[in-house]
Design a protein around this nucleic acid. Structure first.
Lengths: 125, 125
DNA sequence: GTTGACCTTAGAGTCTGCTCTACACTTTAG
DNA sequence: CTAAAGTGTAGAGCAGACTCTAAGGTCAAC
C-alpha cells in the first residue's frame, strides 16, 4: 500500500512515517517503479504498535529496538524470541514501577480522605 | 536546605530544579534572607516522585497536575483526595495498556520459540 | 580583605520528535 | 490534455525538556 493509506489506517502522518523510516524504525521500505514507497500489509500492525509504545512513554530508540527484535524474528527465530523476552521484561519493569506510584497516590488519597472526614465531623486539624 | 543539597539527594541537577520551579512543578519556593532558595525536607520526596513519574513517560504538564493535587491536599483535603484518585486512575490505565503490549510481545515470543524449535528438530519452515 | 565555593538571574544552546514548506515528479479523473 | 491529487526529497521551524554560560551577589575560611 502507499503512504497515504498507511497514514490513514494507523493515524500516523505521512511526514512522521517518513521520519520514522529515516530513524530506522521501519527498516528498508520497498519502492515501486515510480519510486513511491510500497508498504506491506504488516506495516499497519507494526506502525500501530509503535504508536502504542510511544503513547506509553517509550522513546523512539526503545521502540526501534523492539522493531529490530521483531524484524530479527523473521530471520532468526531463536534470537528474535530472546530479544522479545528481553523487551517484555522491560515492559514488566515499567508496570511494576507504575504500581509503586499508584500505591503512593492511593496512600495520599486515603490520608486526605481521612483528613477531610475529620474536618467534616467538626474535629480540629 | 539549599539547592545543592536537594540536587544531591534527588539526582536532579540545580539547573533542572530551577527549571521545574519556573514551570510550576514546585510551587512557591521560600527564599532565605540572602535570596537563596530554602527547600523544606519534603521537597526531597516531591522531587523524587517527579523523577519517577518522568522516567515512566509522564510529561511535565501531567506531573505538574499530580503535584498540584498534592499541594491542594495540604489546603483542601477533600479536593486533594479527588484529584489524587483521578491521577491514580490515569496510572492504572497506563498499566492496563502496558499489559496489552506485554501480552503482544509474549505471543510473538512464543510464536518464534515454536518456529525455532521446529527448525531445530529438522522440520521445514 | 581576598579567594573560592555557592548562590542568583537571564538568556543562549542542544536534543528529541515531530510538523511544515518548497519544489519537482507521477498518477488519476474529467 | 490538463488539472488536481498524491508522492518524492531536502531542509526549515517548532515545542518540550533540559543544559550550559555569563555576569554578578553571598558567605566561610584563611
Amino acid at each position: 500500500m502507499r503512504i497515504a493509506e498507511l497514514a490513514a489506517r494507523t493515524g500516523v502522518s505521512r511526514h512522521t512515517l517518513r521520519y520514522y523510516e529515516k530513524e530506522g524504525l521501519l527498516g528498508e521500505v520497498v519502492r515501486a517503479g515510480n519510486n513511491y514507497r510500497d508498504y506491506p500489509e504488516q506495516a499497519v500492525q507494526r506502525v500501530t504498535m509503535m504508536r502504542q509504545l510511544k503513547a506509553l512513554g517509550f522513546s523512539l530508540k526503545e521502540i526501534r529496538e523492539v522493531m529490530d527484535a521483531l524484524r530479527a524474528g523473521s530471520i532468526d527465530c531463536a534470537q528474535g524470541a530472546a530479544l522479545m523476552a528481553q523487551k517484555r521484561a522491560a515492559v514488566e519493569r515499567r508496570i511494576h514501577d507504575l504500581r509503586d506510584v499508584s500505591r503512593l497516590l492511593q496512600q495520599e488519597q486515603l490520608r486526605l480522605e481521612r483528613s477531610a472526614a475529620a474536618h467534616h465531623s467538626g474535629a480540629r486539624s
